[in-house]
């Protein structure tokens, strides 16, 4: 009987230990809640603004040099006056720059025009990143209307070192087929 008793008490001891383990594991499920919060905090998973900060950091402004940007404006067989408000500026590569152009329709009818950019030197075009430009859309002006239009751009910091000056030139063309013909 004594061996039977000892087995019984050994069984009960093991039962108690295993019950404690299961209760602890039940608690472990709840312990995962603060643990998960902490992991999210450390890994920054909850920081929904973080991706913007990263993007901002990646825009490295190269303060060691500045590039002269000259603005030019032309029209091609179109009776608009078209000019930049500033003839030029100095830009650090990587910095976001903002300029405005002014256009006036001198005709007595509505006219739709499209501006086409070109760069001097031509190589600079691929480093000239326009974020916003009136040349992205056609512009329709009422008779005599005056409009100021923005260009927002960044010069890529990878711009070759030997380019010190970039000329940005816009030419406005009338968009064919938009003119209302009499009759």
């Amino acid at each position: 009987m004594s061996t039977a008793d000892s087995i019984v008490s050994a069984n009960r001891l093991l039962l108690r230990k295993l019950l404690v383990v299961s209760v602890l594991m039940f608690g472990f499920a709840f312990a995962l809640v603060p643990f998960y919060e902490k992991i999210c905090e450390v890994a920054g998973l909850r920081d929904i603004f973080r991706s913007d900060e990263v993007a901002a950091k990646n825009t490295q402004v190269d303060m060691s040099r500045s590039v002269a940007v000259e603005f030019d404006s032309n029209t091609q067989r179109l009776a608009w006056t078209f000019r930049p408000l500033a003839s030029g500026l100095a830009a650090h590569p990587g910095a976001v720059m903002h300029v405005e152009y002014e256009v006036r329709n001198t005709l007595d009818r509505p006219v739709t025009g499209q501006a086409v950019p070109s760069y001097g030197p031509q190589l600079a075009g691929q480093y000239f990143r326009k974020l916003e430009c009136f040349c992205f859309q056609q512009q329709t002006l009422a008779p005599g209307e005056v409009r100021r239009m923005p260009v927002v751009f960044v010069i890529d910091p990878n711009l070759p070192k030997d380019i010190g000056t970039i000329t940005l030139s816009y030419t406005f063309f009338e968009v064919a087929g938009t003119q209302k013909r009499p009759g």
Partner: peptide, 25 residues
């Protein structure tokens, strides 16, 4: 089983309290 079943019990208990007792797990 002893180590993992209680964790499931915990998960569904949290679901239950989220449903009826105002917790927000």
């Amino acid at each position: 089983l002893v180590a993992s079943m209680p964790v499931l019990a915990g998960a569904v208990t949290m679901t239950l309290t989220d449903r009826h007792f105002g917790t927000s797990f």
